[in-house]
Amino acid sequence: MVQKVFIIDDDVAVRDAMGMLLDSEDLPHVGFESADSFLGFYDGNQSGCLVLDIRMPGMTGLELQKVMSKFQSLLPIIFITGHGDIPMAVEAMRHGAFDFLRKPIQEPVLIQRIKQALNVETNLQSRKLTREKLHDRIDSLTHREFQVFEEVAQGHANKAIAVTLDISERTVEVHRAQVMKKLATRSIAEVVRIHIEFELFKQFRNPPRNLLQKP
């Protein structure tokens, strides 16, 4: 999907000028005059980054940031403000803002940060995809297969697993082959790695930016 820069600023001249600046860098962009109009457009599938004026009539930039975080959006947010007031910057950064720039803006800095933000978003998206893929695979395991998966990941031998689960060793072997197939791995080491990742994943239910969680 094509990444876009979403410019949200109530000042038409600023929006237009920023659009032109991004044109000159061949960066695709869309402008919005308010947070609400952006939210009317956003469906959770867009990719890119936000350049957000912190003070706007209606919903402010900080409020939009909170809404986006509820959507578990991966879009990095670059805040723009006319008043470089520290509390607001702290608040924005605490909620995971990508950057906080003062007006008037150092254009090269803005361009550089936008490009970095887009890269970050690409990585986040791909990691998210990997996670989702992994999650899907683990979800496809049957209950019994999942039990075997956990036992194998603990490093237990087939015989021990058979005793624990009270099934025959032969059945364990079948389940085990099935787990390896479904998780698309060939080595025990890989199974262990997947398991660790899965555990981590469970542990951090609420990572700061909600980026690692499956919606």
Partner: peptide, 22 residues
Amino acid sequence: IAHEINQPLTAISMYANSGLSF
């Protein structure tokens, strides 16, 4: 006033930069 005046200044600066780039 500062807020008011920052808007055109921001736009001016960006127009100037994009002008140069173009």
